[in-house]
Amino acid sequence: MIPTIPQPAFTKWCYRAYVTIFFIYLALPLTVVCVFAFNNSVFPSLPWEGFTLAWFFGSEAPYIGVFNERSILRSIGTSAFVAVWVSGLAVVVGTCNAFLFVRHEFRGKAILYMLMLMPLIIPGVILGISILVFSSSAANMLEDATGMWFDGLRPGLPLVILGQFSFITTFATLVISARLQKFDPSLEEAALNLGASKLGAIRQITLPFLLPAIVASAVVSILMSFENFNTTLMLVGSDSPLTITMFDKLKQGSTPVLNAVSLLLIIVSAALGLMSLLFQKRQAPS
């Protein structure tokens, strides 16, 4: 079944139909989420009551739009705060890891590399509970020993940041390492010959070369952090990020305000996703 081999028209037609159905299946849930954001009804379901923008801009109950719903706005802020921290930390550590794995040979490198990949195969829920258990027992121990409070080790944003960081760093490391492997070391040597210091050469030559990968991994980290649910669920305290807030609202029974948030999320994530692809594409030719 390749273009150069003729196939019966019926087979071809069936195949095309299947592919079309598949893409409808892919698009359907997102489409209905978006469409019902504009339904003038308090339930995100049929019948269609007419077009409205109230779920975005409305300010009178029950039509409280996204931009006037405090709990959602606050949780978007929380998510953004977490995402910036996670992405910053993941990129810094990921870059260090890339240099370590690409530039250095040392004993136990293969084992360390395997360990570095581990977070990919640990289910998010387990990652969450293990960090929860560990930090709580650390907090108990420290509190018993010193008599002070260690709130940072109790469920809350610092733990959410650490939990997400613990597996997102692996992705950052993989993306940045792949780029660093393509770097021609003679460029750096040339800089050293021209009198640059070691750090100067890295800053002036190597880091600019890595920049597309760094930006791409930062974008992907932000995306993953924003969307993470499983790990976050176990570590969350009183300030909940967007996905947790939405989950709680969804369990209580939802109004189309959730559709409106989802629509915004879809737009932002698609934009971020395309952006990361563009950056990765830019690094491909060189």
Partner: peptide, 24 residues
């Protein structure tokens, strides 16, 4: 790829709207 850049929560929410008793 696009559906997978979107939060799993949003995707699941979409299926709830489609499948529920008053759904599409």
């Amino acid at each position: 790829m696009i559906p997978f850049w979107v939060s799993e929560l949003v995707r699941t929410f979409g299926w709830m709207i489609l499948l529920r008793e008053t759904g599409v």
